[in-house]
């Protein structure tokens, strides 16, 4: 159990091993570990962010949906209102038109009555004249008695 030159040999081997480990083994392995740590951290952060974004998007979608619903109900209300208005308007128009028609009809009736009256008056005048002629026997001169005739005819009108 003696200490001898083996000690020196072992020390050299040890130094070489440590040097090699320090130079070629530790750095790449440690770096890859660190890099993986970073990657995982980044991945987790990205996942977190994605999750948040999803929540945000869901919120936004809900908001948009709500808005759309509100808008659509507004539109429906407006349309109903407008429809009511149109119905009212057309009722009005119809009423007016009806009245107008009635008025026109009445006017026409009146006109026709006047015409008929005129015609009847003429006929009555001529009949009366004829009857008078026949009664008086051609003594009534149309030219002479124009005043009387028109008076009578006016009275008849």
């Amino acid at each position: 159990m003696s200490i001898n030159a083996t000690l020196i040999g072992q020390m050299i081997t040890f130094a070489l091993l440590v040097w090699f480990t320090m130079k070629y083994i530790w750095p790449p392995l440690f770096d890859s570990l660190e890099e993986r740590k970073k990657k995982i951290a980044e991945g987790l952060a990205a996942a977190e962010k994605g999750h948040e974004e999803i929540l945000l998007a869901e919120k936004k979608a809900k908001k948009v949906l709500k808005e759309a619903k509100e808008q659509s109900s507004e539109i429906v209300t407006l349309a109903q209102k407008r429809a009511n208005e149109i119905v009212e308007e057309s009722k009005d128009t119809a009423k007016k038109e009806g009245e107008r028609l009635i008025v026109a009809a009445k006017a026409q009736i009146e006109q026709e009555r006047q015409q008929a009256k005129e015609v009847l008056r003429h006929e009555v005048v001529s009949l009366a004249l004829k009857a008078a002629e026949q009664i008086l026997g051609a003594e009534i001169d149309q030219g002479k008695h124009q005043d009387i005739i028109s008076k009578v005819s006016n009275q008849l009108g």
């Binding site: 003696s2 030159a5 083996t6 072992q10 070489l16 091993l17 090699f20 083994i25 392995l29």
Partner: peptide, 27 residues
């Protein structure tokens, strides 16, 4: 003093080589 234990030197060198080889491959 100037004698060597060949078995110690040999086995420790082989084992050191094994260690270095394994880790170098992994690295």
């Amino acid at each position: 003093f100037w004698s060597l234990h060949l078995d110690t030197l040999f086995f420790s060198a082989v084992l050191g080589g094994l260690f270095v080889w394994f880790f170098k491959t992994a690295a």
